[in-house]
């Protein structure tokens, strides 16, 4: 029974990684850049909710909406101010800028909230589900996290396949020049991608801090890096890949913590990544790159 419990908690943790990884993978797929500030957007989202709910006793729903709003505006602004001027610049310049934005966000948060860890009030008030005569208990946050992940996956897939903007995103991710020739505004499409990715990061931040309630300006970095690993693991650029990669990563991490060693769990996670990439360099669902002449 305890295995099942670890497994379910792993899926829940993995769902958070998956939601973050979606942002990484969409931005990579469409703008062809690694937005290393993505992890810190999670932290900003969590602080937005923290400010509304824990400090001012606001409604949790309002707290989540505030996080989504703040992060969406922040994501679009970062893209406009820091990344768009570098479109066409070397990937290294963009990468360094992204790392710079990441430090900027952390330090601004440090300035406003200080370095002491804050106690985050969970936004989920659903009682735990007790199964098998109370031997298996699934917390409310766990259920909400897994459900959110499923809903996000369905909504995102429908959005991409059924809407014009979604199709434009696919076109831009494949060939920006050809997309322009279709009349697609590439800059606007990239901005929308950042908006969606950042909104997802906000939700991930709130879920993360509801499950692990200590919040600091560095809260986003480790989950951010793990979600990046999850995105690469699943095949960067692939939406189902980010989902699968995130969940597998969460399950491996939780099971290694439970059965092997909690200190070594990160080492095990990254070793699995290395092995997967040695066998399949493009990740589980990654597309093989065809160079057509």
């Amino acid at each position: 029974m305890s295995f099942l419990s670890y497994f379910i908690n792993g899926i829940s943790l993995g769902s958070i990684y998956a939601i973050i990884a979606l942002g990484y993978t969409m931005v990579y797929g469409i703008a062809k850049m690694l937005n290393f500030a993505h992890g810190d957007i999670i932290m900003v989202g969590a602080f937005a909710t923290f400010t509304v709910v824990s400090t001012n006793g606001g409604n949790p729903i309002v707290g989540i909406l505030a996080a989504v709003l703040v992060c969406t505006v922040l994501g679009v602004t970062i893209e406009r101010v820091a990344y768009r001027p570098l479109r066409g610049a070397s990937p290294l310049a963009v990468l360094i800028t992204a790392i710079g934005v990441s430090y900027l966000l952390q330090n601004v948060a440090l300035l406003i909230f200080g370095s002491n860890s804050k106690q985050f009030t969970s936004v989920v008030n659903i009682p735990a589900l007790k199964l098998a005569d109370g031997q298996l208990s699934i917390s409310g946050v766990t259920m909400v996290t897994i459900a959110s992940c499923i809903v996000i996956m369905i909504v995102l897939t429908t959005f991409i396949n059924k809407t014009k903007m979604g199709q434009a995103m696919l076109a831009v991710s494949e060939d920006k020049g050809a997309a322009t020739l279709m009349g697609i505004d590439v800059n606007r499409t990239i901005a929308v991608t950042f908006a969606i990715g950042s909104a997802l990061a906000a939700i991930a931040g709130v879920l993360l801090c509801s499950a692990y309630p200590s919040l600091t300006p560095y809260t986003g970095s480790m989950p951010g890096i793990k979600a990046f690993v999850a995105a690469v693991f699943g095949g960067i650029g692939s939406i189902p890949g980010a989902m699968i990669g995130g969940i597998i990563l969460g399950v491996i991490e939780n099971l290694s913590k439970a059965y092997i060693s909690s200190q070594l769990s990160d080492a095990i996670v990254f070793s699995v990544l290395i092995i997967v990439l040695l066998v399949r360099p493009t990740g589980i669902l990654g597309k093989t790159i065809h160079e057509k002449v």
């Binding site: 494949e174 020049g177 050809a178 020739l181 009349g183 697609i184």
Partner: peptide, 23 residues
């Protein structure tokens, strides 16, 4: 900007076709 020309009635069939291969 290039994308504004399409609604004005200019279409471009590019060199090397550049169809969206994955679609």
């Amino acid at each position: 900007a290039g994308h504004k020309l399409v609604p004005m009635g200019i279409a471009h069939v590019p060199e090397g076709r550049r169809v969206f291969a994955q679609l």
